[in-house]
Design a protein around this nucleic acid. Structure first.
Lengths: 244, 244
DNA sequence: CCTTGCGTACTAACATGTTAGTTGACAGGA
DNA sequence: TCCTGTCAACTAACATGTTAGTACGCAAGG
């Protein structure tokens, strides 16, 4: 095998079997990028993808256009397409928007919620407790995501969760890289509980404060990440100062 | 001429002369839809668009995919594409998100801003005052949009304004239809001034309250609109109750 | 008169051929 | 050694041919 550009088509398995072809290609590429199977900065070779998936260039182009619109790939016209690198500025921007939206969601829930909704949240929290005790890291990660998704679904706005998900797409990849921190899960559960309690107490301000604190914890961890994985990040300005 | 489906390609003028062809097509279609030149519910004929713009189907397809992702058109697979109708539920959802984001923006500005930024805002407000006195309705509309855009740019997040714009796309078309209300402009200016004063006073809470009130005014007007233009809205459930 | 089955005409979706622009390497000169 | 101009190979972007699925009209039957 040649390692010209270290491009491997293997991550593109048959992810989905129904629906439009272009959507399947999109999901396959998206998952490969979000899981870092295609690392930031790597090239995307259209021809290779077509061959690997057994499709023509049309659906692949459509999928890539969508990924470009979402900022997951950078496309240089007439030249090439590569997986986008992280940018601390973009991360801060996405975090700001995500905080604003999730804070609005929990504030709304604090003002107006049903016993059933509280029960759902409580159930999820107990699940988190369980997974934490079992040390099931992957499971806890999923329950965490589910908790936030649940909060947004409970606003009653059917596309709200999806919209926030799209906006915070830029946070998903760096998020994966800061998974393996030990005592953090306990803190996370405590923060989730604080949000829950504020909602139950019908205290919008407290709920907002709680989720803002919770989400704010991520930022500092992202900053540490930039030190550890500078290769995944967009170069700040021009590396070391050049003397012309 | 035949009026089979009342489709007219005339609104697609040469809007832009540079950049990728697909982007030009996108802008042309987007403007035609947002300006209601293509009314909600009307069909989009790919062949006619290709002929009118003198391009092939590839860039048109790409543009339509993007419009579909943004919810401006509804595409029925293997059948047809039509301009989407309004939905009061979607409008409420978009308003909720827009409020959350703009409120976060002005809160941030209230906490942290420069004299230059205040001067910019003040200049825009005085322009609004001027256009209001001259009765320049279209000009006031633009200054209004510019005011909100300015607030979002001043957060320092370069893509924030664009993101909010995308999210509140669903509000743009109905917004046009409620333009011609007389005394409203005076109120709008007063509400804008209230936002400005709260920012200048470095009072985040007041700033949020002010912009939430300002944006909240739109909703009730949209509800009135649904009465006046039911044909532009998605049917509620099944019209009048059917007796089987 | 209403329902039902069929056939045609239309559409998006997919495949493939073509064009034009960019990158990068290599050769030649300073 | 370093800079520079040329050229070849690769890419996205665009055009066009092909396929398949849907909707609608019409006719035949109830």
């Amino acid at each position: 095998m040649d390692s010209t550009s270290a491009f491997d088509a293997a991550p593109l398995a048959g992810v989905q079997t129904s629906g439009p072809l272009s959507a399947r290609v999109y999901v396959a590429l998206r998952d490969a990028i979000l899981s870092l199977a295609y690392p930031p900065g790597s090239m995307l070779r259209k021809a290779a993808i077509c061959e690997a998936l057994g499709v023509s260039r049309s659906p692949v182009s459509e999928a890539m256009a969508r990924l470009a619109a979402e900022g997951l790939v950078d496309v240089v016209p007439q030249s090439g397409t590569r997986v986008s690198r992280f940018s601390m500025d973009e991360i801060r921007e996405s975090s700001f928007m995500r905080e604003a939206l999730e804070a609005a969601a929990v504030a709304k829930l604090a003002e107006d919620h049903t016993p059933e909704q509280l029960a759902q949240l409580s159930r999820n929290l107990r699940l988190q407790q369980l997974l934490l005790e079992d040390g099931d890291r992957a499971g806890f990660y999923e329950a965490d995501e589910a908790f936030h998704a649940l909060l947004m679904e409970q606003t009653g706005y059917p596309n709200f969760a999806a919209a926030v998900s799209t906006i915070s797409l830029k946070l998903k990849r760096p998020r994966i890289l800061i998974l393996p921190s030990e005592g953090r899960s306990t803190e996370v559960l405590a923060e989730h509980s604080a949000i829950f309690e504020a909602i139950r107490a019908r205290d919008p301000d407290a709920a907002q404060k709680a989720i803002r604190f919770h989400l704010g914890q991520l930022i500092s961890r992202f900053e540490q990440l930039e030190e550890a994985h500078p290769d995944y990040f967009r170069p700040r300005l021009a590396g070391p100062a050049k003397t012309p």
